[in-house]
Design a binder for these strands. Structure first.
Length: 498
RNA sequence: GGCCCUAUCGUCUAUCGGUUAGGACGAAGCCUUCUCAAGGCUUAAAGCCGGGUUCGAUUCCCGGUAGGGUCACCA
């Protein structure tokens, strides 16, 4: 494996999820900040898997984690799937490393075997709870613990019961009293290390310089500080990220209360760049008024000082808006390819599809927030009429538009002459851009009544109560098709008059 | 309950002692060709409370309150 360059050693960050299911915004946001810091400094970003809890492990999680990260555009230099100079990057494959360090601590007299049964421990815990005290194992520290044979938990003998204070890159000076310190478990009785132990060893061995983690770990940090001190090592920089709250309640966002699988956003047709932009802004901002960022712009703008301290609620309406902004950034070709992939085969195989799709795309573009909306438009029959006849009621054609107040509805006598005149005008056209069409039809609409003419034309062409304006529609359909549709409308209203 | 963190419009936030407290999302209204969408303009909307420090506090300090986290052989 190639060694890191000096530059790559300066900033080493990692994302270290446990494979217990899908990734939600919280996890990916943590990864994003760590990644951005490494990227902007030419450093190293590592993907490490913390699979030390066999019971909670969900098969397929690692693949899903990798897919989620890759989707939003996060890439790593070293990790489970690609290896690297500090591998392996999966904790279950590093068991002897943790054994080695456990023995070092035992040798120093700073770790000891836990002799209690689960029942005894539960009794201690219950007692503490009854007395409204926090449970502290160290109050029950055995006087003569047996030698550790690996079949019982191994605990840290907290080197010094004291108050700790430390600097957090986001929160500033933090501190905690001695009550926060306890003899926590280093090695479990199944031979696996705890997260609390393993991550510290791995970060040390992998040269991690900055640790990003979410709010809930803040109360564990004093314990980590005692372990660093027991090991005689310096700790990396800490950056605590603000909690993400669920949209409705005030609870921290978790999988049980509605946190979505990140890949669901992909399914709904959000753009990865928009997702990254959205994630970045959950608890961070550049300090100025910019809000739309490409990944490259984000890397450039990211600063740890810009990270919030207070928790933020998830606002998916903002995601929709951001996604629309990113759609505007897409090239026509990209938009077309992506949009078409959300349409049904039935729609795409319509004979007029290829001829008209380029004209229809801009209409779709201004009507969607995310690509999944295209499928919804099709379900609502808002796409088909561009390519094939719409089945509609004559009542729609006869419905009186607002500017014809005083009349409940229009009549055949009102409409037929209008349609005939429109046909003549359309017949005379040679250029079919929306502007050119408007130029020809506008004077007539003004003269005859805009409400009447434009409503009549638009409903005849679209068969819809709501649609793009009639000039655009004529420009999409062209002469023959426009006239054909008007003829259908004429026939419809004649039928209704009988 | 102990320990810890946090606190500006409904939501996300700017402000690093002096501002008409700014922006964005969302909402409402108006305009722009009939409808819809998009766009433009406009409006409503905030410093949790109480003490200090200071000539002056949203900003600094203390207390309260509220919310969150944590007290696992989970991470």
């Amino acid at each position: 494996m190639t060694e890191r360059t000096e530059q790559q050693k300066k900033v080493v960050t990692r994302f270290a999820p446990s494979p217990t299911g899908f990734m939600h915004v919280g996890g990916v946001r943590t990864a994003l900040y760590a990644w951005a810091l490494a990227r902007q400094n030419g450093g190293t970003f590592i993907l490490r898997i913390e699979d030390t809890d066999k019971a909670r492990e969900v098969p397929g999680s690692i693949e899903q984690i990798i897919e989620s990260l890759k989707w939003v555009g996060i890439t790593w230099d070293e990790g489970v799937d690609i290896g690297g100079p500090c591998g392996p990057y999966k904790q279950s494959e590093r068991l002897d490393t943790y054994q080695t360090y456990a023995k070092i601590l035992i040798g120093k007299g700073l770790a000891y075997a836990d002799p209690y049964s689960k029942e005894e421990l539960d009794a201690f815990r219950k007692q503490a709870e009854d007395e409204k005290r926090p449970f502290l194992y160290r109050n029950h520290r055995p006087e003569n613990p047996p030698a550790w044979d690996g079949t019982t938990p191994l605990r840290l003998k907290t080197p010094e019961i004291k108050s700790y204070s430390w600097t957090d890159l986001v929160r500033g000076e933090l501190s905690a009293g001695p009550e926060a310190l306890d003899d926590f478990i280093l090695m479990k009785s199944d031979g696996y290390p705890t997260y609390n132990f393993a991550h510290i060893i791995d970060d040390l061995l992998m040269g991690v310089t900055h640790i990003f983690r979410s709010d809930e770990f803040i109360s564990s940090i004093p314990n980590y500080l005692s372990l660093y001190s027991a090991l005689g090592i310096e700790h990396p920089h800490f950056a605590i990220l603000p909690p993400i709250m669920s949209p409705e309640g005030k609870k921290k966002l978790g999988k049980r209360d509605g946190a979505k699988d990140l890949l669901d956003y992909r399914k709904e047709g959000y753009l990865p760049d928009a997702m990254m932009n959205f994630l970045a802004f959950i608890g961070w901002n550049p300090g100025d008024e910019r809000e739309v960022f490409t990944p490259a712009q984000f890397i450039e703008a990211f600063k740890i000082e810009g990270i919030q301290r207070a928790g933020a609620k998830l606002n998916e309406e903002k995601l929709d808006w951001l996604n629309k902004e990113h759609i505007k950034l897409m090239s026509d070709a990209d938009f077309k390819a992506k949009a078409i992939s959300y349409m049904s085969d039935a729609l795409k195989s319509l004979p007029t599809f290829n001829a008209r799709i380029d004209a229809v795309l801009p209409i779709i573009k201004e009507r969607i927030n995310k690509f999944g909306d295209i499928a919804e438009m099709e379900t609502a029959n808002d796409l088909q009429y561009f390519f094939t006849d719409s089945s509609y009621e004559s009542a729609l054609l006869l419905c009186a538009p607002k500017q014809r107040k005083g009349k409940e509805s229009m009549t055949v006598t009102d409409l037929v002459p209008v349609y005939e005149n429109l046909k003549t005008l359309i017949e005379s056209m040679s250029v079919f851009t929306p502007d050119a069409v408007k130029e020809v039809l506008w004077p007539y609409a003004e003269q005859e009544g805009r409400g009447l003419v434009l409503w009549a034309l638009r409903t005849a062409l679209s068969g819809k109560e709501r649609s793009p304006d009639p000039f655009t529609l004529v420009s999409i359909f062209g002469k023959e098709e426009a006239i054909r549709r008007i003829n259908i409308a004429i026939q419809k209203i004649h039928e209704s008059a009988q």
